[in-house]
Each structure stands twice: as C-alpha cells, then as structure tokens.
C-alpha cells in the first residue's frame, strides 16, 4: 500500500523538531553555519540536512508581517523525475510497498547536476566525500518496521502526518475544507503527483520558490540529452580513467 505524508503548514510553528529528529535518526554530522538574519538555519538543504524548515516573512498592504513556515523535504513523486533522469535504473529505486524514492550507492556514478536539475523541488544534494546523491528516504527502515518517519514522530503540533495514501488524501481534503473557511487561498500542493502533500494557506510562492512544481515534466530536453549520452560519457570516462 503506498504511503503518503500530509504536511499541514497551518499547524507548523517552526519548532524544527522534525529537522533535528531527521538529523539525529540519520546520524548526520553538524554543518558549520552562521547567522544570516533569518531563523532559517542552515540556509538551504545540504548533504547533511535532508529536512529543512524554511522561513519567509511577508508584509501585507496594511503593514502586518506574516511568517510562513515550510518544512521542506523530498516529495517522493509518484513518477519520480530524478529516477527517469538517472542513467542506471538501479541507481534510484522506487519502493513498491511504500512508494518511497530511494537513492542507492550507485547514484555516485550519476551526473549530479542532471539529477538535481530533474527535480522540480530542487531536493537532491551530493555527499562531497562519497559523491553519493542524498535526500530524505522516507525513513524507510522505520516505515518497513511499521514505525512513523522520525519527522512525523517528533512533530508536537500535528503538522506532520503519515499513513496510507488514501487516508492522507482524505485527511488533506478535510483539513483543506477547514482551513479554507479562514484562508480562501488555501490549497494542497501537487497532491496528485507526490507522496508528500503540503497544505498551505496562501500563495505557495510566499512559502518557498520551489514549494510547488509548475508541472512535473517527465524529462526536460536537456535531461533527455544528458540521459541519452550518459552511457557514452561513462564509456569515455572508463577509457580515460
């Protein structure tokens, strides 16, 4: 049974419990960072932060400033463009039971920019040491053991939800209807295409420039060409090496 997240940003207080819990469960090392005038920290996803609560401030016409929180992560697309863009079918897998999109060690041989460019949400990052591509794996070890992903377990506000896809879609529809009463612009982001469904109360661009995919294209022309020549590139690499 495919699984899904519902991330209800209207309930998120940006405590970053999910961000820290992800890092702890994955035993990811600390990342040097500095104050840049925002509570968003680190500034972006990186090879050691697969989950990031993005902060955005917007002032309305009355001078009232609103804070928007967006717990960004891999969307585990139902038809994953990163998987389509990979040259080796074994490099990026989609777990049949859960729908999780999983990067394997073989991603180290993939062209990082091609895979990253294929993602409409700009999620993949590359480990500088191993050259492996990395991102959220839905806590597949936990999910296979019937345990909630760490980010969901750690959420004290009920913003993060996880379960069977049909149940999450029902919950999403119910929450959307409730939120719309006070926020008419509320919407679910790409709910037909992804396994990580965000509920936002306002224009998605106010949350994050990649909060929503305009339209998920299976492959851009550039990615298609990159994929087409990747076997040649690898042969060339072997010859040179």
């Amino acid at each position: 049974m495919p699984k899904a997240f519902l991330i209800d940003t209207t309930r998120c207080t940006a405590c970053r419990g999910c961000q820290v819990a992800c890092k702890e469960w994955k035993n990811l090392p600390p990342v040097p960072t500095r104050q840049t005038g925002t509570h968003q920290n680190p500034p972006d996803l990186n090879p050691f932060n697969f989950k990031l609560v993005r902060f955005s401030e917007h002032m309305d016409k009355n001078g009232v400033v609103s804070w928007y929180f967006f717990p960004d992560q891999c969307r585990h697309c139902l038809a994953a463009p990163c998987k389509m863009a990979s040259s080796d079918p074994a490099a990026i897998l989609q777990d049949e039971a859960t729908g999780a999109v999983l990067f394997t060690d073989l991603t180290a041989k993939e062209d990082f920019e091609t895979i990253r460019g294929a993602c409409p949400y700009d999620i993949p990052r590359q480990d500088p040491a191993s050259k492996r591509l990395v991102k959220c794996d839905m806590c597949i070890d936990r999910v296979r053991a019937n345990m909630l992903p760490m980010c969901v377990k750690s959420c004290a506000m009920g913003a993060m939800n996880f379960g069977e896809r049909d149940e999450m879609l029902k919950l999403a529809a119910a929450r959307l209807a409730a939120v719309k009463k006070t926020s008419p612009k509320a919407q679910l982001l790409n709910s037909d295409d992804v396994a990580v469904i965000f509920l936002v109360a306002d224009d998605p661009l106010k949350y994050h420039k990649n909060a929503m995919a305009e339209a998920i294209q299976p492959m851009t022309r550039k990615q298609f060409m990159a994929k087409a020549i990747s076997p040649l590139r690898r042969i060339g690499g072997q010859t040179v090496g």
Binding site: K3, R142, V143, N146, L148, K153, F162, G163
Partner: peptide
C-alpha cells in the same frame, strides 16, 4: 502506539 503507522 505513539510511533506506529498501523496500530497492531
């Protein structure tokens, strides 16, 4: 049951 996806 706090961590379970499906309650046994």
């Amino acid at each position: 049951c706090a961590e379970f996806i499906a309650i046994p």
